[in-house]
């Protein structure tokens, strides 16, 4: 799963519009997948590091806790209902969002599009 988020890191560098939208976003986000912790450090809309956990010393602003199968379904080009959006994942019980929700909502488009980058890549590959 770490490799997947490193792919996201590389893909983000090719999306200038996301750097603009995320220009004020400089936070650490924790993604926990089946208990595997991954820390995503954003700096002004760039993902500057993808670091494996566990870590009790790394402060994070908000966290997405989910499972591998849910993320694989989320990244499908046309995801099934419930797997198409991070809030929908929460609603169907396949994810939890912890921490500073307002920080997430203020940057919601940026975060949603960053997390969905593998889907965008698959969609573009299929085209």
């Amino acid at each position: 799963m770490l490799e997947k988020f490193r792919e996201i890191q590389a893909a983000l560098e090719t999306r200038p519009h996301l750097h603009r939208i995320g220009a004020l976003f400089s936070e650490t986000v924790l993604v926990e997948v089946d208990g595997e912790e991954i820390y995503l450090v954003f700096e002004k809309g760039h993902l500057v590091s993808v670091t494996p956990g566990p870590s009790k010393k790394t402060p994070w602003r908000f966290a997405l806790v989910t499972d591998r199968a849910a993320l694989e379904a989320f990244w499908q080009p046309v995801p099934a209902a419930g797997f198409h959006d991070i809030f929908a994942l929460v609603k169907i019980g396949r994810a939890r969002i912890l921490g500073d929700m307002l920080a997430l909502v203020k940057n919601l488009r940026f975060i949603k599009e960053v997390l969905a980058l593998p889907r965008a890549a698959r969609t573009e590959d299929a085209a």
Partner: peptide, 23 residues
Amino acid sequence: WFHRPDAHGGEMGAALVSTNISP
């Protein structure tokens, strides 16, 4: 969340409701 002086309510609202748009 959608009406506060330090953020754009419309942009946040759009990002929220995007949850409900079909792929």
